[in-house]
């Protein structure tokens, strides 16, 4: 089985976000980049499937610039066999989906996994777009995945519960926990990641359908009003008559 895992490189989840250039651009100075947390679940499940099913290969794919190579190497250290980077700024979901679909058409994967959404732009669109571009089913957010022969058994989270389903490969899946637990690379993985192939190729279709204009930070909250623990019940009155939220 051939698995493609698409990873985004996003600012570490503890990052403070700020902007430069008259709020037109993200301030990348001081930001630590990581594998998107949801993509990290997808990668972990792919590596588990590789361990279970003989002959399985895992390719990691990122659309991004050379600064991402160190993050991509981490995916190799976690257990991907090789990696591809499409050398372009990932400008919008449509652009990124086109790059992934193009690689998938050339290489033919049985399973294309990625996170349910990126934690920077939170679009949650790329998996569906890739599925449509390849004309194969796409499902998200997938929290359980088993493969037996050509058949995938999976569970999708729905608001207030789960939906179980069955589908034939090939499939595109947007993943989230608890599909697998995040994997921390071991020493052997880190050593081997340095020599695993990382192919850099140029983007094909450069079309985008959105244009970023400006960013803004939310207004800070006005501050916390403290209520003494022995008068806790007065909170209810404040919520009713001051905040007027209940």
């Amino acid at each position: 089985m051939k698995i493609l895992v698409c990873i985004t490189c996003v600012p570490d989840t503890t990052s403070k976000i700020s902007f430069i250039n008259d709020n037109a651009e993200l301030n990348k100075a001081g930001l630590q980049y990581i594998i998107g947390p949801y993509d990290d679940y997808a990668l972990a499940r792919a590596v588990e499937l590789k361990e279970q099913i003989p002959g399985t290969t895992v390719t990691a794919l990122n659309v991004g610039l050379a600064v991402n190579d160190q993050v991509i190497r981490k995916a190799l250290a976690i257990g991907a066999d090789d990696a591809i980077r499409i050398d372009a700024e990932p400008t919008d979901s449509y652009f990124v989906a086109n790059q992934i679909a193009e690689i998938a058409k050339q290489n033919g994967y049985d399973l294309i996994l990625m996170g349910r959404e990126s934690t920077d732009y939170n679009g949650g669109q790329v998996h569906g777009m890739v599925g449509q571009m390849l004309n194969i089913p796409s499902l998200s957010p997938v929290m359980k995945l088993e493969i037996s022969g050509n058949v995938a058994t999976l569970a999708r989270e729905i608001e207030g519960g789960k939906e179980y389903m069955e589908a034939n490969l090939p499939l595109v899946l947007g993943c989230q926990e608890p599909i697998a637990e995040w994997k921390i690379p071991n020493m052997k993985g880190i050593m081997s990641s340095r020599t695993k192939p990382l192919l850099v190729i140029s983007p094909t279709n450069l079309e985008t359908l959105t244009k970023s204009e400006l960013y803004e930070l939310p207004a800070a909250r006005s501050g916390c009003k403290f209520i003494a623990a022995d008068q806790a019940e007065t909170l209810i009155d404040l919520l009713r008559n001051e905040a007027k939220v209940i």
Binding site: Q125, G128, R156, I158, G174, T210
Partner: peptide, 19 residues
């Protein structure tokens, strides 16, 4: 919503829509 997103992404490609 998770269902809305999953559907809209496929619609976006079919209609070549900005999303």
């Amino acid at each position: 919503s998770s269902l809305g997103d999953a559907i809209a992404a496929r619609v976006a490609v079919q209609k070549k829509a900005s999303l």
